[in-house]
């Protein structure tokens, strides 16, 4: 597990999904969950003083969608190395390819399986 507090940013407009993802992440010790309701809100939080270790983002959100967020994070010199997992209802192969091509590290289709989410995070962060 994490030796010091790792910060995970959940970007999701649905409070139900935000709570479910946060609940699933309780399996990890020493993590802090930060929540954002859309891509723009996420960028504001990424620009703050806290160093984010992982971004979990939905695609379909108001104001700024997840794909735009992934693209902007990857273009930013300070943020571009943060691992990103897309969690979305858009489960078609072309959606997956588009998300990964933009720079997401992993793509999970809803409804999520906690074990799959945990395994993906563990592999990404090597914990």
């Amino acid at each position: 597990m994490f030796t010091s507090n790792a910060k995970f940013l959940i970007v999701e407009d649905s409070p139900t999904m935000r709570q479910l993802i946060a609940f699933s992440l309780k399996r990890f010790q020493n993590i802090e969950i930060i929540e954002a309701v859309d891509g723009l809100d996420a960028l504001r939080k990424l620009a703050g003083p806290e160093k984010i270790d992982l971004i979990l983002t939905d695609i379909n959100m108001p104001v700024m969608d997840g794909l735009k967020l992934v693209s902007m994070v990857r273009q930013n010199a300070q943020l571009k190395t943060i691992p990103i997992i897309i969690i979305t209802t858009a489960g078609a192969e072309e959606d997956r390819e588009r998300g990964l091509a933009l720079g997401a590290n992993a793509y999970i289709a809803k409804p999520i399986q906690t074990s799959h989410l945990i395994k993906t995070i563990s592999e990404l962060l090597a914990v």
């Binding site: 709570q19 479910l20 906690t114 074990s115």
Partner: peptide, 17 residues
């Protein structure tokens, strides 16, 4: 047990919301 935990989490969150 993992699957049951997963299911319980979904049910808990759904009911809570």
């Amino acid at each position: 047990i993992e699957e049951q935990n997963n299911n319980l989490a979904s049910l808990y969150v759904a009911s809570y919301q």
